[in-house]
């Protein structure tokens, strides 16, 4: 049973997140700032984020469920060509067309790589899958006041960054970097089942995906609401108000909030009167590519050295690419 060993990292993650929440939010609740009134403010903002984001999460899990049942990895794998360069391009494009969230894509990539898809193509797919897809684009478009600019930048810059990272991986690693030599046996019986059975399976998957994903959204929304309630804009700027500082802050937020890419646009947008758009773009691109929960899932699948190098590559490349946009 390959599912059982997912439990340990998840436990570690939950514990980590709990500790982080305690460190950052604990003092706020204990301070004199905290009152019933403040909690009600926090709660209202918290619910507001959730109420707004949940329709998008629901649409996301329905599509994810559909893909899970009606599209097999075989279809996608067939499109991966032999040449490195072409494979990277195709994998990034395939990822862009494949609606998934960053937590859902890890097991898929593991399976793809285990079946013989080259690592770099897997990485391309891993990075663009959660970042570029119709729901993410729609929610980004709406979150930024029905403005296409941010959504386009997110797609364009994100795609280029993913291409670059995947190419770098193709030069740096020759083997598949999988932790365990897993034996994947096909049990794609999906195609043989009647339509209604598959539809039922799809909805079951959607429900499970909802429970899997909404945890991170709810935690993220709570942290974001707490920040808004207790931390003033000025104190965030204390870290330095240069564009580099604010980009680092936003990327750290993206990493630790571990938001699902379907909903992070709304949270990113809520920071736009605090931070320059470049930093918010970094938040939007970095978060879907890698975050705390994703890292833990990847550590479970790939060798630690590879995961940390990937984390480093993504951080540096996104940082550089985002700042290049200021010259456009």
């Amino acid at each position: 049973m390959q599912y059982t060993h997912m439990a340990a990292p998840k436990k570690t993650f939950m514990l980590l997140l709990f500790i982080i929440c305690c460190i950052f939010l604990g003092p706020l609740f204990m301070s004199d700032q905290f009152s019933m009134e403040a909690f009600q403010q926090l709660n209202t903002i918290f619910l507001s984020i959730i109420i707004e984001a949940i329709p998008f999460v629901l649409i996301g899990v329905l599509i994810a469920g559909f893909i899970q049942i009606f599209v097999t990895e075989e279809h996608i794998r067939k499109w991966i060509p032999k040449s490195k360069m072409k494979a990277v391009w195709v994998s990034c494009i395939a990822g862009s067309l494949f609606p998934a969230c960053e937590c859902g894509i890890v097991p898929i990539v593991r399976r793809l790589v285990g079946k013989g898809v080259p690592l770099y193509a897997g990485v391309g797919f891993l990075l663009t899958g959660p970042l570029i897809n119709p729901i993410v684009i729609l929610s980004t478009y709406m979150a930024f006041g029905n403005d296409m600019k941010m959504a386009l930048l997110r797609m364009g810059v994100g795609f280029l960054a993913a291409l670059t990272i995947a190419l770098l991986v193709s030069w740096l690693f020759q083997t598949n970097q999988l932790k365990h030599k897993e034996h994947f046996h096909t049990h794609d019986t999906a195609a043989k089942q009647p339509f209604f059975q598959r539809l039922k399976n799809m909805l079951h998957h959607s429900i499970d995906e909802f429970f899997d994903m909404s945890k991170y959204l709810i935690l993220g929304a709570f942290v974001a609401a707490a920040l808004q309630t207790f931390v003033s804009a000025q104190s965030l700027l204390l870290f330095g108000d240069s564009i580099f500082h604010s980009t680092i802050i936003m990327m750290a937020l993206a990493y630790f909030l571990s938001l699902c890419s379907e909903a992070d646009a709304f949270i990113g947008a809520s920071f736009r009167n605090l931070f320059p758009s470049t930093s918010i773009l970094a938040f939007l691109i970095y978060g879907p590519m890698i975050d705390l929960k994703n890292t833990i899932m990847l550590l479970n699948v790939f060798k630690a050295k590879f995961v940390f190098l990937l984390l480093f590559l993504i951080t540096v490349i996104v940082f550089i690419f985002v700042h290049l946009t200021t010259f456009i």
Partner: peptide
């Protein structure tokens, strides 16, 4: 008839 087309890690 429960199908897991990929190594899905849901709690399902």
């Amino acid at each position: 008839g429960h199908v897991c087309t990929s190594g899905c890690d849901h709690d399902h």
